[in-house]
């Protein structure tokens, strides 16, 4: 729909958000994903006492996610300035959350390794891990010019998806490190619940945005029926939701330890791929409302 938007249609018709998804904006999409995924894995790791999940989560968040985020900046060496406005800016808050999470997370991991875990540090690390998971959602929710983003459901979805993804990642690590029998069943419980919650929230989210305003409606339409429908139905729904759901149902009957590892890996991969794709669609589907009325004959335009 907006793919070939002519310059004269810019802000005359609902206009796509580009800065955070196109060209170098791709980096920001990946950064948010890895930061939240990593924090989610760490968070799950602390709960399931998996030092491997914590470590991988910490690295994915801090090194991959944080690194990509800094690469995205126009002036990476000025990144320290970004903590200046926690009073109003979610990016400032986010950087503070991520930094504190990384600090407390590191301390926590060192303490766990040293055998002297402190509940206070763990609570702090998990708190900031959780805030790290959700701040991206809040940052987007704050943008009231984009109806698709401007909903309180977004941080919740991002929170759920972060933990869900993290749980998936943790399960994968457990599989790889052969701890699936000890961690598997309870992680599986989590994933089951989160998956259902995630699917439910996603449906509520899309339906509610559809009724916000015409631009929100157009965004949702583009995702469900429009130019993004293939990604939405094939990747997000089929691979990201239906396939893991099927595997969950099977494993619910057979027990996770009896599942072939390949099926579980596939499920985790699809789950993460679905989540990443949904994030892409939310960034890509974000539209600004026109500044100028244009009712005449819009239906058949190339738009």
């Amino acid at each position: 729909m907006q793919a070939n938007m002519k310059p004269f249609e810019w802000m005359v018709k609902p206009t796509p958000q580009k800065e955070w998804i196109e060209r170098r904006g791709i980096l920001l999409w990946l950064a948010f994903f890895f930061i939240e995924l990593g924090a989610g894995a760490f968070f799950v790791g602390t709960i399931f006492k998996s030092i491997e999940a914590m470590l991988v989560g910490w690295l994915v968040c801090g090194v991959i996610g944080g690194g990509i985020h800094i690469l995205y900046l126009g002036h990476p060496f000025r990144f320290w300035r970004m903590v200046s406005r926690p009073g109003s800016s979610w990016i400032s808050r986010g950087l503070i959350f991520v930094s504190l999470f990384l600090i407390f997370g590191l301390i926590q991991m060192i303490m766990v390794q040293a055998g002297g875990a402190s509940p206070v540090v763990m609570v702090l690390a998990d708190l900031f891990a959780f805030l790290t998971i959700v701040y991206g959602g809040f940052a987007m929710n704050f943008v009231n010019g984009i109806a698709l983003w401007n909903t309180a459901l977004l941080p919740i979805i991002y929170g759920v998806s972060g933990i869900w993804g993290g749980a998936g990642l943790a399960l994968g690590i457990a599989l790889a490190s052969g701890e699936v029998s000890t961690l598997g069943p309870s992680l599986e419980e989590w994933i089951r619940l989160l998956l259902v919650a995630y699917a439910f929230l996603l449906a509520v989210y899309l339906v509610s945005v559809r009724y916000t305003n015409p631009t929100g409606r157009l965004s949702v339409q583009s995702i469900i029926f429009g130019r993004f429908k293939a990604l939405m139905w094939l990747v997000v729904v089929l691979l990201g939701l239906a396939l893991p759901m099927t595997i969950v149902v099977i494993s619910f009957n057979t027990g996770i330890e009896n599942m072939p590892a390949g099926a579980l890996y596939l499920s985790i991969f699809c789950e993460l791929l679905g989540d990443l794709t949904l994030r892409y669609l939310i960034l890509k589907g974000g539209l600004y409302s026109p500044l100028i009325p244009s009712s005449a004959y819009s239906p058949s335009s190339a738009f």
């Binding site: 900046l73 002036h75 000025r78 940052a139």
Partner: peptide
């Protein structure tokens, strides 16, 4: 300005 483009968005 650090070039994060949050303002643009």
């Amino acid at each position: 300005c650090v070039g994060c483009r949050y303002c643009i968005v």
